[in-house]
Structures are given as structure tokens and as C-alpha cells.
């Protein structure tokens, strides 16, 4: 009842709170940014900001966008790392075997999409909950990688055998902007458009909010869920390609390093959005937030082992912020 009246006649303080709620993420970002600029002189330098974007942002942003698609349909994808790894393995192995980089890259994308399709069969076909299905995929994927690499041996590309296109993908730049960052930007824009302006995105969000209504509206909800998980695998595969092109090696199960941060960024973005819906800009800002905190803590000279405490506190702070703003709004 109060909600209804307030929506009709927003008072001035209420409108102010509205601005804060809408921009809670930006506010959090600015705050964290200001703290670190003040705390350490090296934080606010061009070199460091570049380093944040290259080292703390690109790959995680892509992985988190993959996660956001799974979360948008009310699921979660614990196997984003598996898709990253499979893509990376296929890419590196085929380049090592002398295949053209384009062919290897396509195979890598296919491998990631296949991981997503496997999840889709488990979730939409058989009806297993996304959490358990993708957890199963995570375990199976880990074993497959160990079997393929004789117990977890990395697959190196010899320095002489790295094709130019491969190197360009990982370390190249166009007009001074690193190629991985350009790819990430394209994915960010594309995913935002799909989730906010495409019919698929609307249906996906509706499924995430109230799946039974979608079904009762005559929409094939399961097919949309399947597509969301395949998209998640495909997008994660892009991160896998960039990862292996950057370090010119495939290390088994290295993709799992992105899992928890991707979940964190996605839910920070969801929690601090006005409607509490999964959204790409929110996820991206969540990634930036996590990246800045990780980088900033490192620069303050704090013991490396304290870094995860910083991440944990950040998540609590986000929750507290959303709690305060929600309750007043």
C-alpha cells in the first residue's frame, strides 16, 4: 500500500534515495576508487589503471557475462571455468598441431559451446537443477582435462611456434588499445543489447523472475533456458581463447580461478540494481569493483593473503548498502 502511494507522489527525500539506489554501484565504485587514490600514490597513475583493465578486468568481465546469462534465467553456471578450459585446450592443441589460428579458434568456441550444450541437456532436457548440473559438469570436465594431459601437464606452444595471429589476439593492440579489451567491450555491448532489447533477453529475465508464469503464458521456457546456458559456454570460450593467447600455454583447470569472482561480480551487479535483476552493466561494474579492490590492496603493500578478506568485506558492504537503500525505498 505504501509502495503504491509513494510511486504516485515521490517526495523529495524519496527521490534522492531513488537516485542513490539507481546508482548504488557507481557510488560504491567511486568510494573505493577515492579510498585507494588517497591511500597509495601509485594507484591513480595511467600505468596502474591500464594494468587494472588488462590484468584485473578483461577476462573476468567476459567470464562474468557468461555467468550473468545463466543467472538471468534463474540458474547459475559453476562450469564457466570448464568452458574456458575446454576452449583453451582445443585452441592451443590445434595451433600446436599446425592448424590455422582461425580454425583453431572456431574449434575452441565450439568446445565451450559444447560444455554449455551439455549443461542445457542436463537442465532443460532432464530437469536437473542448474547448480547440481553444472557442478557435475565441473567435476567431469576436471577429470577429462587430466586424462587428456596425462595427469595435468600444461600444453606449451614453443616460442618459435606461436603464429602472429595468435600473438595478436593475446597481446596485440589496435590504436593503442589492447585487443582483449576491445573484444571484451564488444561482448559487453552485445550482451547488454541481447539482455535488454532482444526478445530472448526479456523472456530469459521473466524466467529468472517467475518461471511458471512464463510457461503459463505459452512460452517454451525450457528452450530459452537451454539457449542461455549454451550462450554462457560460448562466451566463456572467448575468455578461454584470450587467456591461452595471452600466456601461450594451456594449463588444465586454470579457468576455475574465475568462477567465484564471476559469481561475485554478477550478484553484486544484481543486488545493487534498482529492480534486483541480473544486468550486464551491473556485472561489469561488479567486475571493476572487485578488480580495483584487488589491485588497490596489492598496492597498499598489504600482505597478499589479506586480499580475499578485502573481497569478502566488499561483498558484505555491497549487501549492507543494498539493504539500507532497499529498505528506505
Amino acid at each position: 500500500m505504501t509502495l503504491q502511494t509513494s510511486a504516485i507522489e515521490p517526495s523529495v527525500p524519496r527521490a534522492l534515495i531513488g537516485v542513490v539506489v539507481d546508482n548504488a554501484l557507481v557510488l560504491a565504485l567511486v568510494t573505493v576508487f577515492a579510498i585507494f587514490s588517497f591511500a597509495t600514490p601509485t594507484f591513480l597513475t595511467i600505468a596502474n589503471l591500464q594494468s587494472i583493465l588488462v590484468n584485473n578486468f578483461t577476462l573476468l568481465a567476459i567470464a562474468a557475462i557468461a555467468m550473468t546469462f545463466a543467472v538471468s534465467v534463474g540458474g547459475i553456471d559453476l562450469s564457466v571455468g570448464t568452458a574456458i578450459d575446454f576452449a583453451s585446450f582445443a585452441f592451443v592443441s590445434l595451433v600446436l598441431a599446425g592448424q590455422p589460428v582461425a580454425v583453431a579458434a572456431l574449434a575452441g568456441l565450439g568446445a565451450g559451446a559444447a560444455v554449455g550444450a551439455f549443461n542445457a541437456v542436463l537442465i532443460s532436457g532432464i530437469g536437473i537443477s542448474p547448480f547440481l548440473a553444472t557442478l557435475g559438469t565441473l567435476f567431469i570436465g576436471r577429470s577429462i582435462q587430466q586424462l587428456l594431459t596425462n595427469g595435468g601437464n600444461p600444453v606449451y606452444l614453443p616460442p618459435s611456434g606461436v603464429p602472429e595471429a595468435f600473438r595478436f589476439l593475446g597481446r596485440g593492440a589496435i590504436g593503442g588499445i589492447p585487443v582483449p579489451l576491445i573484444i571484451a567491450a564488444i561482448i559487453i555491448v552485445g550482451a547488454t543489447v541481447v539482455l535488454t532489447r532482444a526478445r530472448f533477453g526479456r523472456v530469459a529475465l521473466a524466467i529468472g523472475i517467475q518461471p511458471s508464469v512464463v510457461r503459463y503464458s505459452g512460452i517454451a521456457a525450457r528452450a530459452h533456458v537451454a539457449v542461455a546456458f549454451i550462450l554462457a559456454g560460448l562466451i566463456a570460450a572467448v575468455a578461454g581463447l584470450i587467456l591461452s593467447a595471452t600466456v601461450t600455454v594451456y594449463i588444465p583447470s586454470s579457468g576455475s580461478a574465475f568462477l567465484l569472482n564471476a559469481i561475485g561480480a554478477t550478484f553484486i551487479g544484481t543486488t545493487l540494481s534498482r529492480l534486483g535483476r541480473p544486468n550486464i552493466p551491473g556485472t561489469v561494474l561488479g567486475v571493476l569493483l572487485l578488480g580495483i579492490v584487488a589491485n588497490g590492496l596489492l598496492l597498499t603493500g598489504l600482505n597478499f593473503y589479506w586480499q580475499q578478506v578485502g573481497t569478502g568485506l566488499l561483498i558484505f558492504a555491497v549487501l549492507a548498502l543494498s539493504f539500507i537503500t532497499r529498505r528506505k525505498a
Binding site: R199, R202, V203, L205, A206, I209, Q210, V213, V214, S217, G218, I219, L275, G276
Partner: peptide, 15 residues
């Protein structure tokens, strides 16, 4: 769907 808008609910079946 309680947490979708009036518009989003109205056009859900006819998207």
C-alpha cells in the same frame, strides 16, 4: 509475474 512491470506482463504472451 509480480516483479515484472505491467507492460512486461501484458506483452509476455504476445512478444
Amino acid at each position: 509475474a509480480l516483479d515484472l512491470s505491467v507492460t512486461e506482463n501484458i506483452t509476455l504472451s504476445s512478444l
